[in-house]
Simulated scan of single mutants.
Amino acid sequence: MSALTAEQCSDAANLGAVLDAICVPRPCRGRPRKRPTCVRVDRAYGARYYRQQIQQQGIRCVCPERLDAKKSRLSKGRRGGSPPRFDAESYKGRNVVERAINRLKDFRAVATRYEKRGHNFSATVLVATIILWLL
């Protein structure tokens, strides 16, 4: 399940809706989990507000520190606090999702979003995903 928004909307502004739509399937029987153990996100989600939103749900946030945040933290000296934890090895797995999204964008209807209605666009993405899976 995913949260579908208008094309011009910011991803970061809809982070709460995306977190609520998460369904992690279990390897055996049972209801899907609503919380993954960790979320690997881009630097755009490195702001304190977004990190707190993710961590309030009990999810570990794996995100490199933004350069402007680091500069601001260092300019405050001791009052700036310590840098947020960052697991570089875990973050390397994020490129798999990025590559999958870029493969989906090879389909013109997905990249340009010709469909006006959300359910039609979701169906287009689903068909493109099935085609990629079959290849």
Rank of each mutant, 00 (worst) to 15 (best):
A17K: 03
I22F: 03
R103P: 09
R40I: 12
T37D: 10
D20G: 03
V97D: 10
S2K: 08
V62M: 06
R60F: 04
N95Q: 11
R108L: 08
L4Y: 00
V62Y: 03
D42K: 13
G16S: 04
G58Y: 06
G77V: 11
L104A: 05
Q57K: 15
D68R: 15
V62A: 07
R113Q: 02
R73F: 10
S75I: 08
C61T: 10
Q55L: 04
Y45F: 15
C38Q: 15
E7C: 05
L67P: 06
D42P: 09
S90Q: 13
R94Y: 09
S2W: 07
V41Q: 05
R117L: 02
L19N: 00
Y49H: 11
D106K: 10
K92I: 06
P84A: 03
V41H: 03
P27C: 06
L15E: 00
I130R: 15
L19I: 01
P83R: 09
G30N: 08
A109W: 06
R51P: 05
V96C: 09
L4E: 00
K34E: 06
Q56P: 07
G46C: 10
R33P: 03
R48K: 14
K105Q: 00
K92S: 15
N95C: 13
S75A: 15
V41A: 11
A44E: 08
L134H: 07
T124A: 11
K34S: 08
T37M: 00
L126M: 07
N120Y: 12
Y49R: 13
R113W: 00
D20P: 02
